[in-house]
Each structure stands twice: as structure tokens, then as C-alpha cells.
Design a protein around this nucleic acid. Structure first.
Lengths: 240, 240
DNA sequence: CGATCCATTGATTCTTATCAAAATAGGTGG
DNA sequence: CCACCTATTTTGATAAGAATCAATGGATCG
């Protein structure tokens, strides 16, 4: 077994995120390291899960981005939300559940099996909090679509991504790598790609953000948060 | 203990709905009857639960409608979804969880304590399916807001309500009682009340539905379902 | 009877979609 | 390294959808 310590916690987004949700004990970290040695990958555009499909085991995203989508009859898809490193795919502690939505890899995605909750109460709690946050993000998405205009929707979503990535140490000072195209953003926000483009330019010209070469920088996250009335999602206590 | 039988199952929306989700055994029905004798009520406009509040016990809605809402800083609310008779409020089997959204009574609401999952595996399964359906309805709401125009949103939501009410025997042949105002509908659909009104009139004139005195009739649910591309939510198997 | 809530109507403005096309970037193979 | 191909971003012109503002009519309730 690999040696454990502060450095290994700090360097892996998966462990870092789960540890931020609930302080992990040695058993949990050991189990995670164990699984992190047996990763498998899914190529960009491939499905991790298909709506209605039986879920044989719960997985953890180690690297890369994926999207929960709803497939619609006319061929277009709707992006429900985004799945990031350190996030669960499937239902911890549940055998033979059915997927309620399709999950597609946006980039190449590295996965591992999620260690069973039984290895550590702390890990079980981290899973529970993770799931509660997922639900909170769904509510956030509904609020976004129902209440905000195009400009606010974009900034609100970017802010959410920033906050979510920060937990895994994948974003700092308003800056992160975004593998989404403007078209995907449009799909997630119920807008057309053309309009997303215009709103992004407008925000750029207002000096609120920059987005080039897959790098996003929010110049003043707090100001954006104030503007769109976004409440920061708490992680100190479980939401359910 | 009261005598149990087909008639008592058929006549109570709570038991009827849970029984439709998963065939209940005598233990479950007895426990439910037991709790149904100790109901308590919440007046219209009062809160059943406030966002962030600790949930002491899981409840069942016996009669009346409520709404999950997100309170926003500017005083306006967003309706996330609607809670109907036979639905759970809170998290079965979880002590000390925190509410992820505020639940407000739309009409006077009659509640009872949800019997513990441990009284019957069938009841536990019915709860699990109920929760899975709740998540599916959140996904449906996101799809609605992101993909449909005003006319379709309204009809899609009414269709969802019809299907959900049918499970509790509270709707038949496209007809049900709706305690929502057009303003609430607008809040749930991300539209203005004025626009909802116009779209309803348009639908009425097209002979697609009628809505008078709190009674809604969808004249051809199947046609609407085809038009808005709505997939009927399955209940025969758990979605998670 | 006034007060209040809800549904309805009209006129106008603003936001966003739609259609079409050009420019740019990124990747691949020669 | 260049030429080519494809995906993505950007631009422009126009139309449709929904919001906004303002006001009226109908119920219902104390």
C-alpha cells in the first residue's frame, strides 16, 4: 500500500474533494488510494451511463468532465448538469438501481470504483453530502433557468463551476480550465449558441470575465455572486 | 386496529399512491392507518419546512397541496415543484437532515408522520421509489424550463400533475382539481402571469383544455404527450 | 359595501431565436 | 512545415416570443 499523508490528500482532486466534504480517516484514504490504482477510462463523447440502464456499481470520476443529459426525441439533448472530478456516478450503497439520466463524457474521463461506504463512516458521510450537494445543484439549475436572464445564467453557472472545482483544488482565484464549448453551455442554459457567444463578449467587454483557449477567469467572483443573488452552497453540514 | 381491506386501500390517496408505487403488505397498511389517525394540519400559506431548517421527522402529505420553493433575495419566490397527497416531506430514515428548500402550503394541508421504513420492506421500497420519482420530476422540470416554449411548458406541467394525481386516484379522464393560481403556475414555469393567461386562453380556444373554477380538464392527454414529447414516468421499477 | 385577490385585455418594449455566412482555431496527414 | 479538414467562434440581419406597464372586470370575504 502507498504511504499516506497530507501530501497525497492535497494532490488528488478526488480525495481532496471528498475530504473537504467530510474529513476522511485513514481507512477511507487507504480504500480510495487502493481504487485509484485501478482506474479505467472512457473516451470523450462516449456514454458512462444510459438512461434506464442498470447501474452495477457506483463510480468516482477521477479526471475529466462529464455531463448528465436527457435525450430527447428530436435528436437534441439537454444538459442537466456537469459531473466533475471527485463526483459520484451512480448511487452509493445501492445495487441494481436504474439510471435516471444519461451521462456522457465531455473530455476523456478517468474513473474508478467508489469504495463501499462500509469501509468508513467518514466516507459514508462524504458520499451523503456529495449526493445532497448534487440535489442542491439541481435546484440551482431550476432557479437559474426559471429566474435569470441570459447574461446572469451564464455567470451564475460559471460561478457554480468555480465553486465546485475549488473543492477539488481545480480552480483558484476565479480561474479554471473549462472543456465546454459555447454550444454545450447553451444546451445547459436553454439558450442558443449564438446568444451565448454574444453575452460572453458583452461580459468580456464589461471586464467581468475572460474566456480564451479553454481558460476561464472570473475577475470578481464576489461581485458576480452579489449581482446574480447567488448563495454559496454550504458544505460544512449535510444539506439533507 | 381498524379492519383492513381493499376498500380502505382504494379510498385513501396516501395508501393508494404508495400501494401503486409498491404493493403494500398488511404491516405497512396497518402502520399507515395508525398514523392517519393522528394527523395535524398546516394552514394555507404557512411553511411546512424552511430552507436550512433541521428536519426532525419525515412526514406524509395526507390532503392538500404544497410547493417546494427557493426563496430569493428580491422577495420573489421560485416554485421548484409541487407536493401532492401521498408525497413525502423530508427524508425517510434520516435523522437531523437539513431542508434543501422551503416547503409552503398552497392549500390547507393535512399531514401525518411517515411510518418508519423498518415496519415493512414494501413500505421502504415505496419510499425509495417515491424519492426516485421526485428526482425524476426535478429533471423533468429542468427539461421543461430549458427546452419548451410557454405553451408547451404549461401543457407539460399540467400533464405531469395529471399523471401524478392519477396515482393517488385524485384525477380521472384528464380531469382534476387544481388549487394553483395562474401566478403560481407562472412562478413554476419561469413566465409572467400575464403570459400564462394568454397561453391558457389560446389552449382553450384550440380546444386542448379547459380550466374554470379550479377544475382542469385535458381533453386529449395522449395528444398533448405526443406534442410536447413527454415520456410517461415509469413506476413499475425504481428509477434509481 | 369596500377591500382584496384573481383573471383578463391592450399597447409597447426588450430579449432571445432564427437564418445565413464568414472568420478562426485545432487537428491530421502528407 | 504546410495544406486541408472539421469544429468552433464570431458577425449581421430579421423575426418571434415573452416581459412590462397599465388598467378593467369578476369574484369572494369580512
Amino acid at each position: 500500500m502507498k504511504p499516506l499523508g497530507a501530501r497525497s490528500i492535497a494532490h488528488d482532486p478526488v480525495i481532496r474533494r471528498l475530504n473537504a466534504l467530510c474529513a476522511l480517516d485513514d481507512q477511507a484514504i487507504a480504500a480510495l488510494h487502493d481504487e485509484l490504482n485501478r482506474t479505467f477510462s472512457v473516451r470523450s463523447r462516449q456514454e458512462l451511463l444510459h438512461e434506464g440502464q442498470e447501474i452495477l456499481r457506483c463510480m468516482l470520476v477521477v479526471r475529466g468532465w462529464a455531463a448528465r443529459t436527457r435525450c430527447v426525441e428530436d435528436g437534441r439533448r439537454r444538459i442537466i448538469n456537469v459531473v466533475l472530478p471527485g463526483y459520484l456516478v451512480g448511487y452509493p450503497g445501492l445495487k441494481r438501481g436504474l439510471a435516471s439520466s444519461t451521462v456522457v463524457a465531455i473530455t476523456d474521463v478517468l474513473l474508478c470504483t467508489a469504495p463501499d461506504s462500509s469501509v468508513s463512516p467518514a466516507l459514508a458521510k462524504a458520499y451523503a453530502i456529495s449526493r445532497a450537494l448534487d440535489e442542491a445543484h439541481l435546484l440551482g439549475q431550476i432557479t437559474r433557468l426559471g429566474r435569470l436572464n441570459a447574461q446572469e445564467r451564464i455567470q451564475d453557472l460559471l460561478l457554480e463551476l468555480l465553486e465546485r472545482l475549488e473543492l477539488g483544488g481545480l480552480a483558484r482565484e476565479g480561474r479554471f480550465t473549462i472543456p465546454l464549448t459555447q454550444e454545450m453551455l447553451a444546451d445547459a442554459l436553454g439558450l442558443t449558441p449564438v446568444h451565448v457567444n454574444r453575452m460572453l463578449q458583452q461580459a468580456r467587454q464589461a471586464g467581468e470575465l475572460s474566456w480564451h483557449g479553454g481558460q476561464v477567469v472570473l475577475h470578481d467572483p464576489k461581485a458576480i455572486r452579489r449581482k446574480v443573488g447567488r448563495l454559496k452552497v454550504r458544505v460544512s453540514r449535510p444539506l439533507i
